[in-house]
């Protein structure tokens, strides 16, 4: 299993798509941090309170910056963006192995399909975490270094960021497992991207027209797609945290298990 993960990570780090998806947010994060810093110090003609402002999730204008604000604002909670990133990486990192036949080599090497599956899933999730995590991480770290934050204690910042990040990661991983299943079914990278985006569009339209039905709205409320942004609510009750954890874990188990069974029975072309 360790060998597989090393091999998959090697492939990931040499993937042009991964490098692109990593570099763009990394550079953007540095530029954004510098712009914010310069604007706060009035070196640039930005004024955070007026022309230059952030809109929070609740629609309010954020006039002051601290680590929490920075972190909250920069973590990708926007579902279409997340789905786009996940399906692009799934298409180029997982599907390509089927398209090029490289998955055959791994099977021929005498490794069990279960190990191959989990190795691939683990590195896929790791890749996604790196891609999506680099932006908020760099902005928050640079923000801490560049700004003189006041107000929040370090303990509450740590608690908030820690809790939100863990719950976010749980739902993030659960959604990744859905993409693993989609890729196992469709194999072809083009199909993975087009079918996923089409399915997302249809589901969004479907939800908009059916959200007045209590069953549909409740289902969405507890689904990982809603929970992934809900976890950034400032105060979560223990009950809400528990529901969130159950939602993430259940989704992950169902989709991962189905994808693994499918891969084990799959005829490798």
């Amino acid at each position: 299993m360790g060998n597989l993960i090393k091999s998959e990570f090697y492939k990931l780090t040499r993937s042009g798509v991964f490098r692109f998806l990593f570099t763009v947010p990394f550079i953007s994060a540095i530029i954004l941090s510098l712009i914010l810093n310069l604007s706060i110090k009035d070196t640039l003609s930005f004024n955070l309170g007026n022309e230059f402002s952030f809109i929070s999730d609740s629609g309010e204008i954020e006039r002051s910056l601290n680590q929490i604000t920075l972190f909250k604002l920069t973590v990708i909670k926007n579902l279409p963006t997340l789905i786009l990133i996940m399906c692009i990486l799934a298409a180029f990192f997982i599907s390509n192995d089927f398209t090029t036949g490289v998955i055959r080599n791994t099977i021929l090497s005498g490794t069990s399909r279960t190990h191959i599956f989990y190795g691939k899933l683990a590195v896929y999730i790791l890749g996604l975490i790196i891609i999506t995590g680099i932006f908020p991480l760099v902005v928050t770290v640079m923000g801490t270094m560049l700004f003189d934050f006041e107000g929040e204690s370090h303990y509450s910042i740590f608690l908030y960021i820690g809790r939100s990040t863990l719950l976010y990661l749980l739902h993030f991983i659960a959604i990744s497992s859905i993409f693993m299943l989609v890729t196992m079914i469709l194999e072809d990278s083009g199909k993975v991207i087009s079918m996923t985006l089409l399915a997302f569009l249809l589901l969004t339209v479907g939800y908009k027209s059916l959200d007045h039905i209590p069953l549909v709205s409740t289902f969405y409320e507890y689904s990982v797609f809603n929970q992934i942004s809900f976890v950034f609510t400032k105060r979560l009750t223990p009950g809400e945290i528990l529901v969130s954890i159950i939602s993430g874990i259940t989704t992950f188990i169902i989709f991962t298990f189905t994808a693994k069974v499918l891969f084990q029975k799959k005829e490798i072309k």
């Binding site: 060998n3 091999s7 090697y10 042009g16 090029t100 036949g101 490289v102 998955i103 791994t106 090497s109």
Partner: peptide, 30 residues
């Protein structure tokens, strides 16, 4: 099966990598 080596149908290679990188992927797996 680790004692076997095979080319089935056509060689399965990663086009965006060099020859030695392709071998490195397989070396790590094995």
């Amino acid at each position: 099966r680790k004692r076997m080596g095979a080319i089935v149908e056509s060689p399965a290679l990663i086009p965006s990598m060099t020859a030695s990188e392709n071998l490195e992927v397989h070396r790590l797996v094995k």
